[in-house]
Amino acid sequence: MTELTSLKYDDIQVGQEVPAFTHKFDRMDAIIYAGASGDFNPIHTNPFFAKEVAMLPDVIAHGLFNMALLGKTVVDWIGDPGYLKKLSCQFRGMVIPEQTVIFKGKVREKLEGNLVVLDVWAEKDDGSEVLKGGEATVYLP
């Protein structure tokens, strides 16, 4: 049987950091995500609509795309996607094409029942907020 997780609950320390994941947003990402998710709001895909109707600087990444990359960052660390029990975040900063976003996490506390709670967030490479106040709860054997 292939094990997906190599982390052990007992080895986790409060304050421990999750390896960061970095992604440079491309306008094709939003077009592909629109198709995969079914969210065809033109603020994500149509530059004319984004600028002239919605008064945005350009098309912006779907919040749920950014959140999915945050989920991926946590799963990259825990290994087994089934061990991700909860994920939440606030969508704060808009991400426009060619901006680079860094997804991060840090262990906040260890709970009974082999659960670990993490602070998770995302920021641009200039330090500005993208996903804020995020929390992930994971199970570890």
Partner: peptide, 14 residues
């Protein structure tokens, strides 16, 4: 008003 709407926050529990 979808043109003025943004997704503010999201929670999932699995």
């Amino acid at each position: 008003n979808l043109a003025m709407l943004v997704h503010g926050a999201q929670e999932f529990e699995w």
